[in-house]
């Protein structure tokens, strides 16, 4: 078995032998030959362009004094970077920025290792039956919606939830975790762990399964105990996957998820729960300042793109395969 490398979809382009495309073949001849393939891709292209790339051009409103009714996208005045300058003197925006980055940092420490530990546990179970049962159970919440997850947490930890029911029955004072802004970061992280950590273990499990068992045997014969084998074989074996996912997460630092925060914003207040995406929604759509909201969204998109490119570059410099490699 080969080492588990994850490579970008872009790399895969060269996997199958290309059709005999002689460089000189005239495009009309190629179209005559390939029209069924073009026809097959047409519905997908229609949707991808119609609902992704064409709307993406609408980001131009971020540079306009956009008047939805009187001007529209073609009749509104250009104002340059005014909205972006306003963003950086807007305390709400800065708070969303700070909240987003602190949640990302917090989850890197407290969420990120959980799928790895879970995969190590699953991998160490000697009974295949027990292992597959536990896998089925921990993957399940991944398929629940955020509305559902929050409803479930509300019933468990909320003011009228099960935990408080028990606390009060035992004579203690109840705590409403669902509305407490001070512990909100703990709440969202445990929700994320409950929902996604199980499914996140899949990729580490695959990496663990791909480690050559002979390495373990050789180490054991040389006298390495189970902890030394974990440290010197298992962890180095899955390091490429860990680095890759860490990079993906760093590149995605501005994305902490929208629904989870949006749905709980009214319960805990915007002070703790305002993140980038909710800011875009509230400043743009809710108040109707589409140009201002679009500027915040565009800022996030551009910074996010730079982050992911930089993270990938860093991975290459550290000698790991990144998300994509230079062709």
């Amino acid at each position: 078995m080969t080492a588990p490398t994850i490579q970008s979809p872009a790399d895969a382009a060269g996997d199958a032998p290309p059709r005999a495309a002689k460089p000189g073949t005239h495009w009309r001849a190629r179209l005559r030959r390939d029209w069924p393939l073009v026809l097959m891709a047409a519905p997908m292209m229609l949707l991808v362009w119609g609902f992704w790339w064409i709307p993406a051009l609408g980001n131009v409103v971020a540079f306009q004094d956009y008047k939805p009714y009187t001007g529209g996208i073609f009749g509104s005045r250009l104002v340059g970077f005014t909205h972006f300058q306003m963003l950086f003197s807007d305390p709400d925006f800065l708070r969303a920025l700070v909240n987003t980055l602190s949640i990302t940092a917090f989850q890197l420490v407290f969420y990120f290792p959980v799928p790895i530990m879970l995969a190590l546990l699953l991998h160490s179970l000697t009974s295949a039956k027990l292992r597959s049962m536990l896998q089925s159970v921990v993957y399940l919440p991944y398929f629940f919606s955020w509305v559902l997850v929050i409803a479930i947490f509300q019933q468990m930890l909320g003011g009228a939830g099960l935990l408080n029911q028990l606390l009060r029955a035992g004579g203690f004072e109840g705590v409403d975790w669902m509305t407490d802004p001070d512990t909100f970061i703990l709440l969202v992280t445990s929700q994320a762990i409950w929902k996604d950590a199980g499914f996140g273990a899949i990729i580490f499990l695959a990496a663990l399964a791909a480690i050559d068992p002979n390495l373990y045997e050789a180490a054991a014969v040389d006298g390495a105990g189970r902890w030394r084998r974990l440290w010197h074989i298992t962890l180095p074996g899955i390091r490429p996957v860990i680095v890759l996912l860490l990079i993906l997460r760093l590149g995605d630092a501005l994305n902490v998820g929208f629904e989870q925060f949006f749905l709980q914003r009214s319960a805990v207040g915007s002070q703790a729960s305002e993140v980038f995406d909710t800011f875009v929604y509230y400043s743009g759509i809710r108040t109707g300042d589409f140009d201002y909201g679009a500027a915040a969204g565009l800022f996030k998109g551009v910074v996010g793109l730079v982050l992911i490119l930089a993270a990938n570059k860093a991975a290459h410099m550290m000698g790991e395969r990144g998300v994509y490699s230079k062709s």
């Binding site: 979809p9 872009a10 382009a13 060269g14 199958a16 290309p18 059709r19 005999a20 495309a21 495009w27 190629r30 179209l31 030959r33 390939d34 029209w35 393939l37 073009v38 891709a41 997908m44 292209m45 991808v48 362009w49 609902f51 992704w52 790339w53 709307p55 993406a56 051009l57 609408g58 980001n59 409103v61 939805p68 996208i73 995406d277 875009v280 929604y281 743009g284 759509i285 589409f290 909201g293 679009a294 969204g297 565009l298 996030k300 998109g301 996010g304 793109l305 992911i308």
Partner: peptide
Amino acid sequence: PGSFGHRTILFSVLLMFVVFPGLIPVYL
């Protein structure tokens, strides 16, 4: 691969992983 328009089609799908149109433009 190698078929007519293959690179353009592939590129416009793969780019969706890193470039997003944003909430407001799609909404509008």
